[in-house]
Design a protein around this nucleic acid. Sequence first.
RNA 1: GCCGCUGUGGCUCAGAGGUAGAGCAGCUCACUCGUAAUGAGCAGGUCGUGAGUUCGAUUCUCACCAGCGGCUCCA
Length: 590
Amino acid sequence: MPHFSDELYRKTFHHTSAHILAHAVKRLYPSVKLAIGPAIEDGFYYDFDHDDTFSPEDLIKIEDEMQQIVKEKIPLERFELSRQEARALMDEKGETYKIELIDDLPDDTIISFYRQGDFVDLCSGPHLASTEPVKAFKLTHTAGAYWRGNEKNKMLQRIYGVSFPDKKQLKIYLEQLEEARKRDHNKLGRELGFFTTTEYIGQGLPIMLPKGARVLQQLQRFVEDEEEKRGYQLTKTPLMAKSDLYKISGHWYHYRDGMFILGDQEQADTEEVLALRPMTCPFQFQAYLTRTRSYRDLPIRYAETSTLFRNEASGEMHGLIRLRQFTISEGHIICAPEHLESEFKDSLDLASFMLKSIGLDEDISYRFSTWDPNNREKFIGAAEQWDLAQNAMQGILKDLSIPYKVGFGEAAFYGPKLDIQIKNVFGKEDTLITIQIDFQLAERFQMTYIDRDGSKQHPMIIHRTSIGCYERTLALLIEKYSGALPLWMASEHARLLPIAERHFDDAQKLADQMRQAGLRVTVDDRNEKIGKKIREGQMDKLQYMFILGDREVTENSLSVRSRLDGDLGSLSVDSVVERLKREIDEKRVR
RNA sequence: GCCGCUGUGGCUCAGAGGUAGAGCAGCUCACUCGUAAUGAGCAGGUCGUGAGUUCGAUUCUCACCAGCGGCUCCA
């Protein structure tokens, strides 16, 4: 008997669960048309074309029907049909979406179906032998989904579910989901006062509150200092530019939907208008173009903590993950072909160093995003240039033995990308870092350098980020550490908790002293019991709390409570300062 | 943008076709306290915004705004 921990078995299990879902829906709502219903990471979904909407009550009814189908222990039988027979069968059942799928199958495909009782579905399989093992499941939520993921097509109704061989595993899963909800940066980050949003400012435009802003400042300082050490030059470029600039770069034609164009939209094509920048590249290219460059000048590494604006669709914004305004650790390396490999590797090394320093180096994966030669609208440049860029990148990845999956057609419009992907607390994947090779834009901007032989050459460009987008990185940090960020980046290193009013002055003096030593220390001088101050400090996710009462004042000491190490007892003020400073300087993450 | 759900004082949430409650937070007072919530009192909301239905709506309808889950896209 295969085990649920086996990926293929699990997938099969989930896939059969999807069929059980569809079977139940067809029993309850015979007029519903079936679209697709695959297994996904933790479960399955099925897309239906249904005239009414599935309400939460409907989901309960469907679950009950699914229970019944499992109880009936219906066997699943595979059978194959010719294309014509398959079409006829689906036509008879009115399954128009299935017919479309059949018509799109390549000629040599074996067209298979699975029958479970009175339910038949086009499916390549494999499936469980019977509905019986699907003992525990839950329909978790519904969502709209376009047929074939294309917004021009009809929107279908998707039902998501999870399933397990027994109730205990389902219970554990649901509990884990509950735990994940508590870490959700969008909830926790607001609760803890990292950021907020207001309807008067708008979607995707967060206000970083003092706590969040301080963290971002620490990260930014760290990034900028490290980049300076690694030979980057800083630029500070405008947040907007004339449309002319974007016409040269190609953004005007390939990224326009994502741009905020100022002024009269109607006249934007004929009049000169300004647009907020969605990327920094063309701006830093202008910096390069200020003088004639020699091969001796290369590589030039420009870095900038760069605020960008992208007009995301209104339904797309999410917490600090997807924003309309965000700040990225941007950079462009303008180099000669012989530098490409080492500069790319250095960029990757810098990104890896950053992720390690903030503790996000685990749970990452690599994606090599290529162009799609059949979608020329989306990309600029000649096929040979793409091949050149992609081969270069692929060679480097192979050289570094970096395992990657391919994101076909997901390149930037000007070049292939290496994306470092990370999963959030709910297992959803997002891009944290991207490093891109660009053989196109230098030519468009007529960027050149004088080579050894006196000839003019176009440089190559690496677009890269070192720590990604600050807001998104913060979101992942909040989730990773449940809001208790590593000391070096925390907005509040420690809080002094005086026991009674007579200790307030001493606490303030001590806090001043510690601030002079470079620690971010506050004092809780409310007239509250020490138990309450500790409780609130704990809920604020403080790494350190210092308790100050008669004993400590006499001894010039502090009672230290560490979030990670517990009660450390009474320590001298000097040794406490020493301890925290060391932890900060070492940028300890845990 | 599209589909679905949601929107009550700073936060978490009750509530009902006849113009609203609780806990926490806040403020005041008392207590001056030793490792996860001291007690009492006070104050705070035109129930997201606008329009419609109705004798009357915060409760019903519609639109808009915002939040959540997805689709598509992406840092």
